[in-house]
């Protein structure tokens, strides 16, 4: 039994006029929450669809739980929530769920019991009203999202794949989703989700993989990724603003590579050869009245911008969703 829920090796997917995924390898350990980060058009959905055997890679291999993802029955252990969501509109909620559960190999009586549990849990079945008896198009958008989420988890999958799960969710449902993901993790399930909202990824993920233009930019545990970039960033806050001499120091490219002026503090990235102590001394010499000087860990958002931006990917990129 493999320790990896997903093991992708050297996968390539080419379309007529462009390469969607270029020599991508990534490993998702069992029991982890894994974030697939990247700007729109980076190849996230293509990668996910290849994992799910919806589209075939041109080359490379994809294993789930140690066996090829084309193996019979392996998809029954996977739950998938696509970015484009939808259900049979004219069908009764309970029947839609039953159908999707049966497709995952759950027998009808077992499925019926689980459906009731989930409907109760998401308040779709109350003593006053059983929404399970209603047709899908009679439900509000939020309720439909819940039903869709139930459909993803109904067969108690070991691996849950969520493509842009936060898009279109209101803050309450987004929080419910975060809680649900953490609960899955507690129960030893593996969750992989794609997003371009870095804050969510930073809070929820054990590991991340940033891809851009179909290529892996970096991957690893979130703590490792942040530590690797940590010593180069300084949070600086000055009493009385930036005076002339101080400004000169901050724009010295031998010391400071990049300057982000936030509302409350400045975020500096040190130049490759620079020393933070030299910077501090120079600032004091220039007469700066320092309120805060802190070696900081960069946010995933900054790492993302830094690494993906370095490759000149600008279009369609979004930091905070």
């Amino acid at each position: 039994m493999s320790d990896l829920a997903i093991d992708i090796r050297n996968v390539v997917k080419r379309y007529e006029d462009h390469v969607a995924v270029r020599d991508l390898s990534l490993q998702v350990p069992r029991g982890s929450v894994y974030g697939l980060l990247g700007p729109n058009g980076a190849g996230k959905t293509t990668t996910i669809r290849m994992i799910l055997d919806i589209i075939l890679p041109d080359s490379g291999s994809i294993n789930l739980f140690g066996v090829a993802n084309t193996t019979n029955g392996v998809m029954d252990r996977v739950g998938y929530l696509p970015e484009e969501r939808g259900l049979y509109k004219k069908m009764q909620v309970r029947r839609v769920l039953l159908f999707l559960a049966e497709l995952k190999g759950i027998n009808p009586t077992d499925a019926a019991r689980r459906i009731d549990e989930w409907l109760d849990r998401f308040s779709l079945r109350t003593p006053e009203k059983d929404w399970g008896e209603a047709k899908v198009d009679e439900l509000s958008r939020g309720m439909q999202q819940k039903v869709q989420f139930i459909a993803t988890l109904l067969h108690d999958p070991e691996l849950v794949i969520l493509d842009e799960p936060f898009s279109g969710l209101d803050p309450i449902n987004a929080q419910a989703l975060k809680d649900a993901v953490l609960e899955l993790k507690r129960r030893g399930k593996t969750v992989i989700f794609s997003t371009h909202i870095m804050d969510n990824a930073e809070k929820m993920c054990d590991s991340v993989c940033i891809i851009a233009r179909g290529e892996k930019v970096l991957d690893g545990r979130v703590t490792d990724v942040k530590r690797a970039a940590s010593t180069r960033h300084v949070a600086l806050s000055l009493v009385g603003g930036v005076q002339n001499g101080v400004s000169e120091v901050l724009h010295d490219t031998s010391l400071v590579r990049k300057l982000d002026d936030n509302a409350n503090f400045m975020e500096l990235e040190l130049a490759p050869a620079a020393d933070s102590q030299v910077l501090l001394r120079r600032l004091l010499e220039a007469g700066a009245n320092i309120d805060r000087f802190e070696m900081m860990q960069p946010s995933l958002h900054q790492i993302f911008l830094q690494r993906v931006g370095a490759q000149g990917i600008e279009t369609g990129m979004s930091g905070h969703g």
Partner: peptide, 16 residues
Amino acid sequence: LEEKATRVAEVVISSV
């Protein structure tokens, strides 16, 4: 067409 338009197709195709 309905499966496509309602986007249910992708969930179904991930199972069958």
